[in-house]
Amino acid sequence: MIFVILMSEHHHEHDHSAVGNIKFAFFLNLSFSIIEIIGGLLTNSMAILSDALHDLGDSISLAVSWYLENFSQKEADDDFSYGYARFSLLGALINSIVLILGSFFILSEVVPRLFNPQTVQPKGMLFLSIFGIIINGISVLKLRGGSSLNKEVVSWHLMEDLLGWTAIFIVSIILIFKSVPILDPLLSLLINIYILYNVISKLKRVLAIFLQGVPDDINIENLQQRIVEQSNALAVHHTHVWTLEGEKNFLSTHLIVRDQMKRDDIIELKTRVKKLLAEEGIDHVTVEIEYENEECESEDCRA
């Protein structure tokens, strides 16, 4: 039995500027969260307090993401042979959980106000919303274009903040001209439902990666069929695909070849398979070559 490890020439460069951008966004959001809490209490606005807690959660998540994003750039060593890239993914996991818990807390405060709306100060809401749009707009610009799931989650949450403040801006203008106090808790409810829906979907993706699920854009059956159709392999089985942190994809598989296949033909087969899988976004490939009449000892081979 011939055992071969293939690694593509695809290189992933760490975005060192992203660490600095997350650090910048952390200090900006933390400062604004404090202003929001004070402003929310002064204006008696649940929508603003809702976003204040959300921003505070973002600040905590940004601090964790900042640390883990930096830590994830360490090279592989004896303790972590795959490297530390998954620590970035851990940041996305913590980020999502903090936001989900914060959203449920806010919902517990908002729902009673739907049945007993309270008067708010729309002019104060308007002022804070303008400030919020500027602050969150700067943060979004700093973090846009992130490639890791950690940066994607952080950037997406900041975009949610920007949309939330835009909604508060619109509602505050309406409240200045017409007293409809239920608009404030209703807006808070809608913002939190929207946040929960999207954060939970991100959390499912993070958990799928941690549990070594097959990446959404990869179909194992199609991969095996393509290898057989476009190479000298007689059959392909025992194929496993997973992703390290949402960017680097790994694959291991067994290729069955003719008993008479020569060394040069096997090398050509490996090169062909490597090229095919690189086109499918597979970065690291482990191939086990089996001859036609060779008995496969793995239980997966008999499945």
Results as ranks from 00 to 15, higher is better:
1 M>N: 07
15 D>G: 05
18 A>M: 15
24 F>E: 00
26 F>E: 07
29 N>P: 05
30 L>V: 07
31 S>A: 15
32 F>E: 08
36 E>C: 01
37 I>L: 14
37 I>N: 08
45 S>C: 08
45 S>A: 02
55 D>R: 10
56 L>R: 04
57 G>L: 06
62 L>F: 11
64 V>G: 06
71 F>C: 02
74 K>I: 04
77 D>H: 02
87 F>Q: 01
87 F>R: 07
96 S>V: 03
102 G>P: 09
110 V>Y: 03
112 P>H: 03
113 R>V: 07
119 T>G: 05
121 Q>V: 12
125 M>L: 08
130 I>K: 06
133 I>H: 10
137 G>N: 07
143 L>I: 11
143 L>V: 05
156 W>A: 15
161 D>V: 02
163 L>S: 09
164 G>T: 12
168 I>E: 05
169 F>V: 04
170 I>Y: 02
187 L>I: 07
189 L>V: 05
191 I>P: 03
196 L>Y: 04
200 I>D: 05
207 L>E: 01
207 L>I: 15
210 F>V: 10
211 L>Y: 11
215 P>K: 12
217 D>W: 02
218 I>V: 15
234 L>V: 11
258 R>D: 14
265 D>K: 13
268 E>R: 09
271 T>F: 00
273 V>E: 11
275 K>H: 13
275 K>Y: 15
279 E>C: 04
279 E>H: 09
282 I>C: 06
283 D>M: 03
285 V>G: 00
295 E>P: 00
297 E>I: 03
299 E>S: 13
